[in-house]
Every structure is written in structure tokens, then in C-alpha cells.
């Protein structure tokens, strides 16, 4: 049984080079998902090396960048929660970050990790979709609504590294996470909504975090009831260990109604 090599790049440039040249390499940031899978040996294919990008200064921080708010891919949720800039420009992301896991997970979890893992239940992902965030990599920018291509599949090339996420400013987003308990819960439904422009983004109701296009179209027309009706057809929920398709469908409609009544 082979051991997995630990690669420790000295800067982002070094990381990009190592990632491109090392076969079977996986980037490691906070480790909240990857370390579990590494230890249980459930990753297919089994990685031969991990690339520790947690400490890279270039991937940390919250800052303004050409009219957008930019958050480093390896910045922790705690870092986002503590950032004044994040509070001012992406308050829904800050509030959502506080619902992820608990202190231990918030201290290690990152936007880059949540994106790369691409779980349909990734808690920040509907928030990113509602903000029309842009995923920045070592070579390009990817609009968030083109990022998720299938169950745990993304538009990233095999050797492409996420470096930051950018958010447009001045958008009002509200959200609600429905989990089984108040902390340390993987969501059953996670929804983020923006009125203008109309964005209704939902996690845990399909194989990818998705935008409910039918409901968005209705909302764009100002048809709230139409949006609530349409959202049931926009999603593809399943029965699993956490919940049922029926529950997810009902709650998706209920949560949308609630979010649109306060928003």
C-alpha cells in the first residue's frame, strides 16, 4: 500500500507548476472533506500526492478588485466571517458561512474547497450562484453558472487551480439552510434568492447546485406565485439517507415563499 506524498509549494507559482507536473495530485486546503476521504481511502482514483495550498498567501484574504469583491480560494470561512469588506458587500455569504459545520470546520473550510468538491449540498454554492460570482483560476475566469457540470463534476481542467472567487457588489441576497440540526448539519435544502436580478439558487435538490430558471423567469415578471409553482419543476430531488424527494419539493416551495415574503 503506497503512501500519499505531501507537497508543500513555496508560493502560488510553485503550486501551479507542481500541480501541472505531478501525476495523481490533489490540492489540499482546509482538509474538511479531503482528509476524511484520504483516511478512509474512498477517493477514486486514489491520489498519489496532495498539494498543500492552505498557507499560500496569494490565496488568502478578502479585498476589492476592479469593482468586485475578491475572496482568496483558501481563505477560511472564519476569515470571511471576520472580514468587514465581506460584511458590507456579501452579507449573505457571511451569514451562510456561520451555518457551516461549527467553529472547527469554519476555521478550515474554504470557498475553493467547497467549489472543487462540488457537492450538491455544498453550503456556499447556492449563495455564489445567487450573487453571480466568478470563479478565478490560474488561467481564466469561469462564471459560476457554468461551473457545475454534473454530479461532483466541474468545468475545471485536471490541472487547473482555483485561486479566488469574485462577487459583484450591491446585490441583496437572502438565504435559508434547512438541515436536520442547528450546527454540524449537511443541508436537506439550501436556497439563496436575489430579487433583482431574479436569482433562485438551490442546493441538495439535484445532482448539482442549480438555478431554478423557471422560477427565476416568473420572479423576473413579478409573479411570486408563479415562481413558487415553477420551482417544483425546476428541481430534481431524490430520496436519500437525509430526507425524501417529497419533503425536499415541499420545503423548496415553502422556503421560496418565505424568502420572497421577507425579501
Amino acid at each position: 500500500m503506497h503512501e500519499v506524498t505531501f507537497l508543500c509549494p513555496k508560493d502560488l507559482q510553485d503550486a501551479v507548476r507542481l500541480y501541472r507536473t505531478t501525476p495523481g495530485c490533489r490540492p489540499l486546503a482546509g482538509g474538511t472533506d479531503l482528509m476524511v476521504m484520504l483516511h478512509a481511502r474512498t477517493l477514486r482514483p486514489q491520489p498519489r500526492a496532495v498539494l498543500d495550498i492552505w498557507s499560500l498567501a496569494e490565496l488568502k484574504g478578502v479585498r476589492r478588485h476592479s469593482g468586485m469583491l475578491e475572496i482568496g480560494a483558501a481563505e477560511s470561512y472564519t476569515g470571511i466571517i471576520r472580514s468587514r469588506e465581506a460584511h458590507r458587500h456579501v452579507p449573505a455569504l457571511v451569514a451562510a458561512a456561520r451555518t457551516i459545520g461549527a467553529a472547527q470546520i469554519q476555521n478550515r473550510g474554504t470557498l475553493g474547497g467547497n467549489l472543487a468538491n462540488a457537492s450538491p449540498a455544498g453550503d456556499t454554492l447556492p449563495i455564489l450562484l445567487a450573487y453571480d460570482a466568478v470563479v478565478v483560476t490560474d488561467r481564466r475566469s469561469i462564471p459560476i453558472d457554468q461551473f457545475f457540470t454534473g454530479y461532483r463534476k466541474t468545468a475545471l481542467q485536471p490541472d487547473e487551480l482555483i485561486t479566488a472567487v469574485r462577487f459583484p457588489q450591491g446585490r441583496d441576497v437572502v438565504f435559508r439552510k434547512v438541515g436536520t440540526r442547528a450546527a454540524q448539519a449537511i443541508s436537506k435544502v439550501m436556497m439563496a434568492v436575489s430579487r433583482k436580478p431574479a436569482r433562485i439558487a438551490i442546493g441538495s435538490v439535484a445532482e448539482v447546485p442549480l438555478r431554478a430558471r423557471g422560477a427565476e423567469a416568473a420572479l423576473e415578471r413579478g409573479d411570486v406565485d408563479g415562481a413558487i409553482a415553477a420551482v417544483a419543476d425546476d428541481i430534481r430531488p431524490i430520496d436519500d439517507v437525509r430526507s425524501t424527494a417529497d419533503y425536499r419539493r415541499t420545503v423548496t416551495q415553502n422556503v421560496l415563499r418565505e424568502l420572497l415574503s421577507v425579501g
Binding site: S55, T78, Q104
Partner: peptide
């Protein structure tokens, strides 16, 4: 000074 789960940390990361 920050609390973490040590089962999720690769020891190389505490260098």
C-alpha cells in the same frame, strides 16, 4: 490559537 479537528489536519500542514 484557533480550534480545529486534528483528524482533518495533515501533519505537514502544521510545519
Amino acid at each position: 490559537g484557533e480550534v480545529v479537528d486534528s483528524c482533518l489536519i495533515a501533519v505537514g500542514q502544521v510545519e
